[in-house]
Design a protein around this nucleic acid. Structure first.
Lengths: 212, 212
DNA sequence: ATTAAAATAAGGGTTAACCATTATTTTTTG
DNA sequence: CAAAAAATAATGGTTAACCCTTATTTTAAT
């Protein structure tokens, strides 16, 4: 039997090495390791590994963005996320992008093996304590309540832009941006204190990058 | 020769395992591994390992806080930090707390061995690209420019407290807190935009926890 | 084609975080 | 103890982020 080919990417070399060693010792064929998102993306395209085990936070290009770029194109590679993020919106977004497995870094190593096995048998694997929303549940993601413009503006806010900055960049009136801001605050159920939206957006940067 | 005893603590089990395996395979005696700060602290007290290799970000008790609690007490255990933080203030704080080694997670594994060797020979080891400030350089830490009250207030700000909240908790006038805020902004050289201080404090939470 | 949803915008108002200046009291330190 | 540093506080002002309401235009969906 030909061993299953795997690409491993994570921004910490130590984790990359640990994962690669662990999987190697269990009979998998590690065809590449990377600590940079863009390089990982190119290697997935060129090497077409059976599985890409990706972190979500990586320099230049995050795991969600890689999954997005690959969506539809490469059905040869199954993507697994290995991340610290347990937010429903990220998990749901991963699901939408056809990601086959989702693991938290806090999990024991065994779950990585289970996950790979499961996927190779055609069954997606999302960690058991995650609110999995495959098909049925639909366990709504709070970000889906927002309109496209609202998400666009929220992303600017998470990049520390002021209402004025955003209005200028989008060629709309400041008043419009303000209206969007208060709509977002209402939809997200945030408090009416001054910087609640800024703080929320900073805490949900990763999620915002994944959605467009 | 009796092997050197080591305790390894990091909030990610994968990293703990990787470090423990790696060090074991190089002849060290891993007496304990932990993913929780408080438990790591107690194990250091009880097991008195020669070396404690600690992450800074851990649940319940961070590496800096462990070093603080051990300061003066346990001269039997040498502390090494293995972290993503490269901020001068954290490095300096580690130095002040008698931490003997400081490694970044992005470093190659070899440096961990070098670090342990160096420390066991009585020579502290701070990563070569870190601005080390052992004795001479003094390469000032920006946080040392702040007075104790200013740091206290900055910590509240990083916990998303408003000027009013802070004034109430410290039993001082809001105007006093405001004055401190603008002094902090001036000392840190931040911009005069509305939320510069909040953003800065959120981005430097870890450093603020280490200093009192 | 009609309705619903989203995006656009303005008027008018509150609050909190910033600015500058001045000044008194308390604490630290040489 | 005297000088320096820090903490305290007030007066007065600007700005940006929030609130509310109303309204027109654009886009999407049935």
């Amino acid at each position: 039997m030909i061993p299953i080919t795997i690409l491993v990417a994570d921004d910490h070399p130590l984790i990359v090495k640990a994962l690669a060693d662990f999987l190697s010792s269990h009979g998998y064929n590690i065809v590449a390791t990377e600590t940079n998102g863009i390089r990982a993306f190119h290697k997935i395209i060129n090497l077409k590994p059976r599985i890409a085990l990706l972190d979500i936070e990586m320099p230049d290009l995050g795991g969600l963005e890689i999954a997005e770029k690959l969506f539809g194109k490469s059905d040869e590679t199954f993507i697994i996320f290995n991340t610290v993020h347990r937010e429903q919106s990220i998990i749901q977004r991963a699901n939408e992008l056809g990601v086959k497995g989702y693991l938290l870094k806090e999990y024991a190593l065994d779950q990585i093996l289970e996950c790979i096995q499961s996927i190779c048998n055609g069954k997606p694997y999302f960690g058991n304590d995650l609110t999995v929303l495959t098909e049925l549940g639909q366990e709504e993601n709070i970000l889906t309540k927002l309109s496209p413009s609202e998400i666009k503006i929220l992303r600017f806010i998470s990049q520390e832009k002021s209402t004025k900055d955003i209005a200028e960049r989008l060629f709309i009136a400041e008043k419009t941006v303000e209206k969007h801001r208060s709509n977002i605050i209402r939809k997200l159920g945030l408090s009416q204190t001054k910087n609640s939206l800024l703080i929320w957006s900073l805490q949900h940067k990763e999620e915002l990058l994944g959605i467009h």
